[in-house]
Design a protein around this nucleic acid. Sequence first.
DNA 1: CTGAAAGCGCTTACAG
DNA 2: CTGAAAGCGCTTACAG
Lengths: 337, 337
Amino acid sequence: MRSRKRVTIREVACRAGVSTATVSRVMNQSGFVSEELTQRVLRAMQELQYFPNRLARSLKKQESFTVAYLVPDIDNPIFAKVVRGIQDVMEEVSYDVFIYNTRFSDIKLSKHLASLLENHPRGIIISAWHSERVKEAVSFLQSIGIPTVIVHSPRDIPGVDAILVDDVQGGYEATRYLLSIGHQRILSLGVVRSTTSMLREEGYRKAMEEAGNSSEHLILKAPSFSPRDGYAIVRAFLDKGIPITAIFAHSDSLALGALEAVHERGLAIPQDISIMGFDGAYASFTVPRLTTMLIPNYEMGKKAAMLLLSRIQGTSSVPSQELFAPTLFVQASTKPL
Amino acid sequence: MRSRKRVTIREVACRAGVSTATVSRVMNQSGFVSEELTQRVLRAMQELQYFPNRLARSLKKQESFTVAYLVPDIDNPIFAKVVRGIQDVMEEVSYDVFIYNTRFSDIKLSKHLASLLENHPRGIIISAWHSERVKEAVSFLQSIGIPTVIVHSPRDIPGVDAILVDDVQGGYEATRYLLSIGHQRILSLGVVRSTTSMLREEGYRKAMEEAGNSSEHLILKAPSFSPRDGYAIVRAFLDKGIPITAIFAHSDSLALGALEAVHERGLAIPQDISIMGFDGAYASFTVPRLTTMLIPNYEMGKKAAMLLLSRIQGTSSVPSQELFAPTLFVQASTKPL
DNA sequence: CTGAAAGCGCTTACAG
DNA sequence: CTGAAAGCGCTTACAG
């Protein structure tokens, strides 16, 4: 089946016996069209199954109705929720969203950025990582004056709107919770060279110090956030026989690894060791269900989208960095000592 | 910061001292431009940080470089992987992809469809559900001649390209596996009014019959695929005291619920009861890790995208319904009887 | 090899 | 209230 030629405004005008200007006025409800012509146009649009061409419209109006989201890994539940938040807001205002998967690659980011700009989106939401290239990209976007909002990361770029997680506070509250139910020997399971993990650790240290606990020898860092790495390093740690009663993993994925390592050791969770995660990515899927710090990803996506829209509308101009606090979600993987 | 006016082909032409036609020829590498002019144009584009306007290009060429994916729930790991597959293929050919989240709503589907068509995508990939509205939507797309490929579902629409899961085969192999390791009393845990579940059950029945097992009283159906519903119904079933040694859940999410119900009963998995899932959505997150039938979602997304591209290029025209077989992934939640 | 000109499908001053 | 006409940023026959 060959693609039938799409019907244009001209054909609608012809069928309704009016000018294209009138059709356009009816479509845009710009008023000043008589009731009779309005009806004729509406009917013609119906009969021809007419869909306006947004490309032409955008070109003429010199503004598109799209935004773009650059996401490192759409497959990750965290970002998938951010996407949903963005979609839900943009849907309200009939903006369409282009999604570009950057796979944590500087090269892909640059490539997508170039391609994306050709679509002339009204604004860009970006979740990225800490690298020079990302910084360059963002300041380039700033320089050409396209509204940009960062979600989640990176966090060290000044002068840009950003929706971030309050990691220090989260780490602090997580640790406070474990302390409050009697734990003292709490292992901090983080990741090397991760800003996020560093901040969560900062919260952990603060809580431990306040409680008069020494924490130096209870800090463990995996090479990455993967369950596999979490598993390997916790397993090695347990081999050393250093006594602990709780693990504060800096992500749910790390907690997954910890769960497995502890389980394999023949220790019961939470009877022998309490384990908690951070982010909520897998909180409901583990058995036992994981206590964690929930990150409001959906809300963050919504907020980013709303902030972007306000920039697009040009209502405000002071860059805002908003911190979202994670909330404690107690489930079955932790218990009082 | 006000949006600086974007630079156009005219300015590039002006700066390079050539016509816009020449700039266009250089951009599109259509040849017939002297080395010297080519260099001048290239330099001008660089200096002005010129990005061509794809909207204008598409309008003129009467073809866009976008496709759309209508997804019921982007937040669902299954669809998130499909998205990734689609993206990876489309990225190769520099097509951009619009994503519309339909939340399993007929109304949203229609709304998005209308909005989507205004963007004049070259083709559409759709994952939906079984409803009249969806059928109408698809045949409408067919009628206006826009290439359409279905992924996952619905499966009862004839004459449309579709990338589907071989559910009967999957259910059959899952059951065969449990039988092969000695189980006889295998509970089938499905969902009411779900075509997918029905087909998986068909495979289960077939395997049971072949093995000379009666299965009638071992078939259970939850109201939905949610862990919660799986939990509730398995819990109620266990109360009846009907002896079983294995559970074949028609999804990983149902298996999650089963895991919890069995665990709560004080039964060990897999020592007392083996449990397996289907789809692989949560296979790596449970403790013990779930034996399941892996669905190649990423590959299905890729395949759908490739098929769509071949339709767009018009190389072939016989609608193809391709079945992807799930593969058995044995982990720790099942063991020989 | 190069440019002037028409035109893609819209919108919007400008006349009437 | 209505229409003719110009123009958004490109591409592409058509001349030269």
